[in-house]
Structure formats: structure tokens, C-alpha cells
Design a protein around this nucleic acid. Sequence first.
DNA 1: CAATAATACATCATAATCCGATGTATGCAA
DNA 2: TTGCATACATCGGATTATGATGTATTATTG
Lengths: 99, 99
Amino acid sequence: MILKLLSEKERMYGYEMVQRVKEMSHEKILIKEGSLYPTLHALTKEGYLTTESALVNNRTRKYYSLTNKGKGLAAPAVDELVDFQQTLKLIFGSKPALS
Amino acid sequence: MILKLLSEKERMYGYEMVQRVKEMSHEKILIKEGSLYPTLHALTKEGYLTTESALVNNRTRKYYSLTNKGKGLAAPAVDELVDFQQTLKLIFGSKPALS
DNA sequence: CAATAATACATCATAATCCGATGTATGCAA
DNA sequence: TTGCATACATCGGATTATGATGTATTATTG
């Protein structure tokens, strides 16, 4: 999801990602800090993301962007999830439950 | 998925479930024995499934069925997955990639 | 006819992943 | 001044998936 978000918006910070996913998913997917920040750090360490820090309203913000390598990771990863969603639909395709 | 399968067919055995999911998912989801059997045993132990063994073609088969308790688990669990699939679609909804 | 694939069960150790709890700090609203 | 939102971060525990491994029979195919 991080890769998906950053494919659609060049520069985002962690907290913003949490809000964006919450909004896009109609409050259904709530990314926790305990999941987000370690993942962001790992992706950065592996060279998929770059960061720049900023101070906004006297609060620290750390912006993340995809590197070229990151774009290379994002494209197939997003495709895979699109595919997975469609596969899930094959099995849990929403036929409304008849009483 | 086990619960989904058994909601649609009263009695199934492990190997059959693997084949059915493989088929329904167009070969995309391949449940491994290392995932399936421990799960089946756990669900049985917790009273969600009952088993009956049979010998077919000189090979052992263990059929599983939902108990009433299992049906109570299956209904909301399946709903949850249907819901999840739709949520995933909100985020990874397949807009075909423009070149 | 011998080797391989398919059918059918099972377990275990390793790896991956998620998240609750916890901590720090500022700004804003009640 | 209490609490909520913003904003970062870490760590340990719990859950889950699966590759590897094992047993055994039947069917296929070169």
C-alpha cells in the first residue's frame, strides 16, 4: 500500500499515509504505527525510498519518495495486488446473501 | 476459505479443498499442506468442524463438515472476507494501466 | 517395467508480519 | 488543564504461512 500511495503522489509522510488509507478504505483499513514505521525504514534501508525531513508547525515531518529502484518495485507489486483483489473476488465475489 | 468452501458443500476432504481453491482461483491460490492440515485440525479441536474418515480406492480420506458452531463462525467470517475484497478494490481497483 | 506424477494424509522448524504497548513532543480546543 | 490530533519511533509477543520432510497407494508414461 505504501508503494501504491507513493506511485500516486510523489511525496508523502507517514501520518499522511495512515490518513489516506483510512480515507480510501472508508475507515476499514487502519495502518498502525507499529506496522508503518518499521516498513518505511526497511524500504528506505533497501534503497526503495528516499527521505527528506521538514519542520511544519513546529512538528517534525519525514517525507518519503520512491527512488527509481522503488518505482521498479512498485509497479509489479501493485499489479500483484490488483491481481490478488480480482482473485479474491473469484472466491468471495459478492453475491448478496438471499435471506 | 475452508469455511467458505464448507458453506457451499457439506462434506469435503483436505485434498479436495486444495483442488477446489486452485480451480476457483484459476491456479492463483495454491493452499499448501503445511497451512491446510494444521488449520483443519485447529478448527476441529475448537469444535467448528467434525470429521469422518473413509477409505476410497485404498487411500485414506478425512471428510470435514461444519458443526452448528462452525456455521456460526463461517457466516460472519465469509462476510468479513467479502467486505475485505471490496475494500481492497477501493484501493487497488483495477483501472487498466495506460501505456 | 521403472520412474514419475497424482492422490492423501501429517508434522515441525523457520520466517515473515502485524500490532499493542510504550515513549517523546507539540498544537489546539473545550 | 485535560484531552485529542498531529507526528515520529521501537520492541516484544502473537499469529500465520510454508518449505522440507515423511508415509503410503494408485495411475501414467516413456
